[in-house]
Amino acid sequence: MADVLRFGVVGLSSDHVWHLLDALRRQDGVEVVAVAEPSPALRERAATEIPGVTGHESAGQLLDCGSLDAVLVCCDNAAKAVVVPAALARGIAVYQDKPLAATVAQASAIAKALAEHGGTLMCAWHTVFDPLYDEVGELVRGGLIGDVRFARGLAGHAGLTGLGVSGDFRAWLTDPERGGGGSFVDQAGYVLTAFADYVGPVRRISGFGGRIDPGLPARIEDNTAAIVEFESGALGSVDTRWGQIGPLPLRYAFHGGKGTVSCFYDRWEIVTEAARLDGWDPMPAPPGLHGFRRAVQPRSGYDDEARYFVEHLRSGEPMKRAVSVESALHVQSMIAAYYASVEQGTAQLVDPAP
């Protein structure tokens, strides 16, 4: 691996991309050398913010410019199914924003390309890099709270207008063909990734969706709820919102036969039969149980995930499953089952996990 890793960027319409770019450029031995974006205004912004960067109108032009080690892919979800296989076919490593694609068929094409060409692909559900995410996963999988019987996950933000989402980003976020849906495809994957990582594959989903913002297209939902059934027999619930007023009171909760794990914005809490948990502070618990708490500084950017990807390129060590194509493809299948359930009014089976 070269001393300096040369990155290209495909797609500048997502508001996330500028923060991801900043995080990449803060990594030692990384140089962002080229961008691909149809919009002249966005290419001009990149030229202003990244000295010496070369601008291209299309992904094909960028991928054929030569000497790229990796590419950050932040184009619309449907376009990823063209861009990512093309990069892998050229031996270029891929760091892509979530989700894998807009549909299962597109996501499967990406997985097929990785299997055919090999190489590196990280699908970054950003919350996988939140403080304590990996440690808590090990505790849950290790049986600290017993077999998980029920999982709960919430995701929401102030909405496209409330967040000041740019017109370029909104244009494809609210296009069912380019984005794949609304709030559920945008947000539920964070929860579903943690569910599959901590508890195991999901077998079936029953979904409900609503549109509160009258300014959204008819096929774009901004308020959702889903019930999931895991292959283990455990149950779970997911709800998402574009238009969350105030902070989320809870992010995740996992309820097992021996205890409960809860994740809040600024802390994790565990109530369990175990009498000791190294590195955790004690907190009150019901009789016969023990409580533990860890305060966390909420993730404020993307530096940890950028560093993880760069270090993986240099070390060649296997990626954790939560950012793998296998996990992302299973999440895409869960998202597809949700939309099918909303449309047909019945619970839908999820394609088996890879």
Rank of each mutant, 00 (worst) to 15 (best):
F208V: 07
E326L: 07
L248F: 12
S183I: 14
F129C: 06
G60N: 06
P85T: 08
Y95P: 01
L160P: 08
S67D: 11
H19G: 10
L289R: 02
A36E: 04
P354K: 02
V83Q: 00
S13M: 10
V350A: 04
T120F: 15
A347C: 11
S166Y: 01
V35P: 02
F150Y: 12
L163Q: 13
A111F: 00
D186R: 03
G181R: 04
V82A: 03
E31W: 12
L289P: 02
D175M: 14
A86K: 09
Y190I: 05
L114V: 05
P354W: 00
R276N: 06
G180Q: 05
Q61H: 06
S14W: 05
S206F: 15
E177S: 03
A36V: 07
G159N: 13
E44G: 11
C123T: 12
T120S: 12
D304H: 11
H330Q: 08
F150T: 05
G233I: 12
E135H: 13
L5V: 07
G181C: 10
D266F: 14
D134H: 07
R204V: 09
H126W: 03
A295K: 12
G256K: 06
H19V: 09
W125S: 02
L5R: 07
E305H: 10
T240H: 11
T260M: 08
R294K: 14
V30T: 04
G316W: 13
A171F: 07
P85Q: 10
K80Y: 00
R276S: 09
G207P: 06
R299W: 08
V238M: 10
V148P: 08
S237T: 14
L248G: 06
D351H: 08
R170N: 06
G291K: 14
P354D: 01
E311I: 07
L72E: 09
P217Q: 11
D168L: 14
G215S: 07
L289S: 03
P354L: 00
